[in-house]
Design a protein around this nucleic acid. Sequence first.
DNA 1: CGACCTTTTGATATTTATCAAGTAGCGTGG
DNA 2: CCACGCTACTTGATAAATATCAAAAGGTCG
Lengths: 247, 247
Amino acid sequence: MAAVDETGQPLAPLLRKLIALGPVSQADVAAVESLPLMLRDYPPGQEIVRERDRPTQSCILLSGMCCRFKIVGEGARQINSFHIPGDMPDLQSVLLHQMDHGLLTLTRARVALVPHPTMLHLVERHPRLGLLLWRDTLIDGSIFREWMCSIGRRTARVRVAHLLCELFLRYRNVGLVEDMTMPFHLTQSQMGDALGLSVVHVNRVVKTLRRDGLISIASRRLTVIDWPGLTKIGDFEGGYLHLTSNS
Amino acid sequence: MAAVDETGQPLAPLLRKLIALGPVSQADVAAVESLPLMLRDYPPGQEIVRERDRPTQSCILLSGMCCRFKIVGEGARQINSFHIPGDMPDLQSVLLHQMDHGLLTLTRARVALVPHPTMLHLVERHPRLGLLLWRDTLIDGSIFREWMCSIGRRTARVRVAHLLCELFLRYRNVGLVEDMTMPFHLTQSQMGDALGLSVVHVNRVVKTLRRDGLISIASRRLTVIDWPGLTKIGDFEGGYLHLTSNS
DNA sequence: CGACCTTTTGATATTTATCAAGTAGCGTGG
DNA sequence: CCACGCTACTTGATAAATATCAAAAGGTCG
């Protein structure tokens, strides 16, 4: 089965991302495009993979948003990452066979499933792609480190602003920002679970960011009104996202 | 230059770790053993690599301890990871060319430096080793996620206990635990910077763990007196360390 | 329209940080 | 071997940040 559906090019976000990760040859692109895909749609709030599962395939997020998370102690949730189109949120399961966290849709999401053996075969035949995928998981790790800094050492206001800056750059990187506006489907409760804060506190902080003319949120879209201001408040430097292939 | 010094087998911790990561062939082992190494000793508190550096080599920690860290906002420090012998704390710099964090020795440390081109050449010639190294960086990521959970959603007492459990298993994995006792060189200030806590608070928590008969600390060694108790208090399940190659 | 989820607000409680100061341990040099 | 100095540890008092509890208001979707 070829990588084609009614939209014509479902893998576009992934290809865009791979190209941003580093130089890819025509043959590499062709190999990715000819992956046998199983497309699948999920409703919001669906667990695609569960902690302790031993998945036999990995997924590529084509549209929508999902997150990785763990349940801690007496039921508290920690969200480890947010994922946007083009991401491969459980790529690590190719080499770490048991899931140490869950994967959950936050919106309606379309996903392409690729069997692990196919994935291994791909990186074996195309070592260059293997390095790019490795690099992608390393960037994942870099983002985890930055989140640790936020949660461990930043105040609530800084944390929230920092997260918004990160999402903004990542969306822009895959071409989903227009007029300083990005898709924004997160609830304040989800932000809290990602930032180690309570819903109530997130609410109060977001309010001040709006009041101070930094952002505005409407109908699931977020507009950055004052980017320099937001990055300053958020103690944000985007280097950790490694968005250019030489960094 | 062969991988030999006065101790006879400096790479032993790394080899032990690679074998624990998954099956390696004789040829793979030989390739690692014949890496051209530059051995180097550092005093405690030395920055091996700085944030924003563009290193041209990666290091293998042979003895001692080091940590990755970032300086956040107005000078607060967040430690992202601790590293023990056998670890390659900046392996990621092979593919992420600019450091997004620093690397600091916590004790006297012996390190082997391997140039990036040598590393790339190694994984090209030995794809199996490439996958193991990739796997190792994925486990790194898994530990980051778990630390996020600790910092974001666990109380101070749980956090401290959890960290001690993790270090215990990791030391045991490289053969450095005897009689439930592991090397322990961390200061309470370093623990605080890793866990997102103040020194004072770490101190109070450690005191209670000692008082409750869970651990004892003496002359830079930590003994786990009540492992089931410590894991329970620390909300600790070791799966995220992926210490067996099928997990 | 109604049910449900998310956002918002107020009041109070808890955890953890900060500040300040004293104590103990350890390495170094005389 | 001991004295000194530095660092890490310890303790108490107070302050700040954030959580929790409770409830109302606003949106959204079937």
